[in-house]
Nucleic acid binder design. Structure first.
Lengths: 107, 107
DNA sequence: CAAATGGTTCGAATTTATTCGAACAAATTT
DNA sequence: AAATTTGTTCGAATAAATTCGAACCATTTG
């Protein structure tokens, strides 16, 4: 059978609100680089290209992986937008699922 | 020179309140077994022997390690008490440092 | 004093996470 | 249409975390 090739501008899987797991969210937020991304997104959606994890020497595959961990935990949404990607903090879902958590983490 | 041998009932090091780091706290809480311990301690201090990480097949060295991660992150206090150890959630310190975080995590 | 209880530490083995470069693909620009 | 920009995925290398048993120790119990 043909192997499904990777689809770059494809829709990436996101957990539904009720599938978001607390320990996975905490883990996603427990990395300084990932937490910094979340802080940037707290001000509103950002295009991925404009979202820099303050370490300029980071490989783009590494940055992509940071986004993947956040996305799979349900912390951010990552959607195709024109040539790039739009990153959005899932504030509504997180607030509904774990009231007060995001506010506390964002300080 | 004599090597300092391990001191079992010794005072273990704890970070001061202002040394507690958010990402380390989040990491400590991101493990289900550790989070369960914290939930048990939310009701008040418990003797370590009475604090079970719901997996009965766990080695005692593993349990000790779980406590170590929580202690070094500043989440719990671990003090000598008679033959055993008394575990205390550092609620005051955590509330002062990261208001609302513990409440949000404990649900 | 001997044995049992409770718990830390060390070292080794295993499992997970991180990081990178290479390959690839879609949309845009030239 | 070719080149650029943007960003995912894969596989491999490395780094970190977890887990266990063994050794050890201090206090209490017999």
């Amino acid at each position: 059978m043909m192997e499904e090739k990777t689809q770059p501008t494809a829709d990436l899987p996101h957990p539904a609100r009720d599938e978001i797991v607390l320990t996975e969210v905490l883990f996603a937020l427990s990395d300084p680089a990932r937490l910094e991304i979340v802080r940037q997104l707290a001000g509103g959606p950002i295009e991925a290209a404009r979202c820099n994890p303050f370490d300029p020497s980071i490989a783009k595959s590494t940055k992509s992986h940071l986004m993947k961990v956040l996305r799979e935990a349900g912390v951010i949404r990552n959607e195709a937008l024109a040539r790039g990607r739009l990153l959005t903090l899932r504030r509504d879902d997180l607030d509904a699922r774990f009231p007060g958590l995001l506010d506390a983490v964002l300080g």
